[in-house]
Design a protein around this nucleic acid. Sequence first.
RNA 1: CGCAGGGUGGAGCAGCUCGGAGUGCUCGCAGGUUUCAUAGGCCUGAGGUCGCGGGUUCGAAUCCCGCCCCUGCAA
Length: 308
Amino acid sequence: MRVVFAGTPEVAVPSLDALAASAHEVVAVLTRPDAPAGRGRHLVRSPAGAWADERGIEVLTPQRPREPEFQERLREIAPDCVPVVAYGALVPPAALEIPRYGWINLHFSLLPAWRGAAPVQHAVLHGDEVTGASVFELEAGLDTGPVYGTLTEQIRPVDTSGDLLARLATEGAGLLVAVLDAIEAKTARAHPQPLDGISMAPKITVDDARIRWGDPAFAVDRRIRACTPAPGAWTTLRDERLKLGPVRPVANTATLQPGELLVERTQVLVGTATTPVILGEVRAAGKKPMSASDWARGLRLNPGETLL
RNA sequence: CGCAGGGUGGAGCAGCUCGGAGUGCUCGCAGGUUUCAUAGGCCUGAGGUCGCGGGUUCGAAUCCCGCCCCUGCAA
């Protein structure tokens, strides 16, 4: 089939690679417009857009997909189908009707669980043991369309959202291509989502990523893994922000107040509501990432200082 | 022209405001020593163009100008 691919961030790239290697042809890529990003606020092409640039494929970057100019161009291209992976904008019904086989979305959860922008983060935060990917038909509602196919994926106890998303992006790409194959062969069947088991996964905010040391150790661990690498878990010491990499819960006999620091010879412990956790990598404001031991060495901590 | 912090032996820092011998802290490393033993204690030692280039000065890690690199926030 001739497809227009819609996607923006890095997680979309494995699907593009899979499509390029498949029998289908990517005739254009729809992605979010170049945006000022990073220090200095230079305009930056999205990873999906860059992928298309490298291959000389047309890139569509409407400010909004409801723009008539965009829809007109899409009609001219007349794709058979528009596969979507993390495009980043709602698509109006008028645009959904343009491709013969509609828009089909690769979403990184087992729908109807974790509908929304941050399914992987919420699965990790919630402590799910299993998640997966679903390919469904896009409709007006948010991630509500009938499902063509799914795959499941174990969430390992040490998985960060980044780890898990990388696996899902790769495996999901295969699922996406398989669904396109089935649609072309007219063997695909979409099943409406169940009405129970619905949950929402809104975007994780910076505030969500702040560690609450009054939480039990398992919750602190999950929150950090869920927020790694983006937006990045953080806490504060002496009113300075400190980003935290994954920690290790420990069955330690040390009794520490929530947030209280204990610097030992080879590790740094922090108290929670339950047992302490061992800090892994940390990143102080303006500094490079470093091990918690290195960080603590230069601190000249006073006894009993706490993270907030 | 978005806002901000940083670059000092191998690691993490202090020293800079107000120039005065590369000084200090916590580690690491090497050797010695103590110990039944050790990731332990004690002693000694090696290791640095203070990011780079100019300027001011009798004298610059420190003050002035320019540049490079790293990072946080914001988007």
